[in-house]
Simulated scan of single mutants.
Amino acid sequence: MNYKKLSKLLLVPLFSVSMFFGINNNHQPAAHAASKRAVKVAYQVAESKLGSPYTYGASGPTTFDCSGFTQYIYEQAHVNIARTAQGQYETTKPIQRTQLKKGDLVYFGDSSDSISHVGFYIGNGQMIDAQNNGVITENIDAPWWSIVGYSRP
């Protein structure tokens, strides 16, 4: 058999299998966006935690660090995301700023390899996040943050 024909015959099933299982070759996460209901639940939980204290390494239910907070609120909505801000950035679906909507995550740091903070986007340029002042609502463009990227759990 001709090697060209054989390689074409092998590539079609391989492509089909990779599409079925969500495998991609772009080193981008193969994630599915959280449902509208899950975002609604996560938002309600996030609002209910406003004023909770910040503790480095904490993931709730009464005290949080930034990524512990985003993981916790999505966990309550039955959506599993990574524990760290870097892990969340690397394993959720990347989006552009123009695509931001309530429930998306906003990442801050020095670069995409050095994420140091994450917040839960609530619309109108605002997020709910856990930081030194506890769980608060603040502007994503606050001068003390440097945006690195955005994603959709």
Results as ranks from 00 to 15, higher is better:
residue 98 T to W: 04
residue 88 Q to A: 07
residue 107 Y to C: 02
residue 4 K to Y: 11
residue 74 Y to F: 14
residue 23 I to E: 03
residue 64 F to W: 00
residue 50 L to T: 00
residue 69 F to P: 01
residue 93 K to L: 13
residue 113 D to Q: 10
residue 3 Y to L: 08
residue 48 S to Y: 01
residue 121 Y to Q: 01
residue 33 A to D: 07
residue 55 T to Q: 13
residue 119 G to M: 04
residue 133 N to C: 04
residue 93 K to E: 08
residue 8 K to A: 08
residue 62 T to I: 00
residue 1 M to K: 02
residue 52 S to L: 13
residue 72 Y to D: 06
residue 64 F to C: 02
residue 4 K to L: 07
residue 99 Q to F: 11
residue 92 T to I: 12
residue 69 F to E: 00
residue 75 E to K: 15
residue 58 A to W: 07
residue 41 V to M: 01
residue 123 G to D: 06
residue 21 F to N: 10
residue 111 S to N: 10
residue 71 Q to T: 02
residue 153 P to T: 03
residue 132 N to R: 13
residue 144 W to E: 03
residue 87 G to T: 11
residue 14 L to C: 09
residue 30 A to V: 12
residue 107 Y to T: 00
residue 83 R to H: 15
residue 97 R to P: 04
residue 20 F to D: 05
residue 110 D to S: 14
residue 3 Y to P: 05
residue 11 L to Q: 09
residue 146 S to N: 15
residue 45 V to Q: 08
residue 11 L to I: 14
residue 152 R to K: 07
residue 23 I to C: 06
residue 6 L to E: 12
residue 116 S to V: 09
residue 68 G to C: 02
residue 54 Y to R: 11
residue 60 G to R: 08
residue 100 L to K: 12
residue 128 I to W: 04
residue 127 M to E: 13
residue 46 A to Q: 00
residue 70 T to S: 07
residue 121 Y to M: 06
residue 102 K to H: 06
residue 68 G to M: 01
residue 66 C to G: 12
residue 104 D to E: 02
residue 82 A to E: 15
residue 85 A to I: 10
residue 39 V to H: 11
residue 95 I to V: 10
residue 99 Q to C: 11
residue 131 Q to T: 04
residue 34 A to Q: 06
residue 124 N to A: 10
residue 34 A to S: 14
residue 74 Y to G: 02
residue 135 V to C: 02
residue 45 V to R: 01
residue 60 G to N: 08
residue 78 H to Y: 13
residue 140 I to D: 04
residue 42 A to N: 12
residue 123 G to F: 07
residue 147 I to S: 02
residue 68 G to H: 03
residue 109 G to D: 09
residue 35 S to D: 06
residue 33 A to Q: 10
residue 85 A to V: 09
residue 57 G to M: 02
residue 17 V to F: 14
residue 24 N to W: 13
residue 44 Q to E: 12
residue 151 S to G: 14
residue 133 N to S: 14
residue 150 Y to E: 05
residue 40 K to M: 07
residue 43 Y to N: 04
residue 59 S to N: 15
residue 140 I to P: 01
residue 114 S to H: 15
residue 65 D to I: 07
residue 133 N to G: 12
residue 74 Y to A: 09
residue 51 G to R: 12
residue 124 N to L: 04
residue 103 G to S: 07
residue 73 I to N: 04
residue 9 L to R: 12
residue 152 R to Q: 10
residue 57 G to N: 06
residue 133 N to T: 05
residue 113 D to Y: 13
residue 10 L to C: 11
residue 76 Q to Y: 04
residue 77 A to N: 00
residue 29 P to Y: 05
residue 84 T to N: 06
residue 6 L to F: 15
residue 9 L to T: 09
residue 79 V to L: 13
residue 108 F to P: 07
residue 65 D to R: 01
residue 128 I to G: 03
residue 29 P to A: 15
residue 18 S to R: 03
residue 137 T to K: 15
residue 127 M to Q: 05
residue 66 C to N: 04
residue 122 I to P: 03
residue 105 L to E: 04
residue 138 E to P: 02
residue 11 L to W: 14
residue 36 K to P: 02
residue 49 K to Q: 11
residue 43 Y to R: 11
residue 95 I to L: 06
residue 47 E to M: 11
residue 122 I to C: 00
residue 12 V to N: 00
residue 3 Y to M: 06
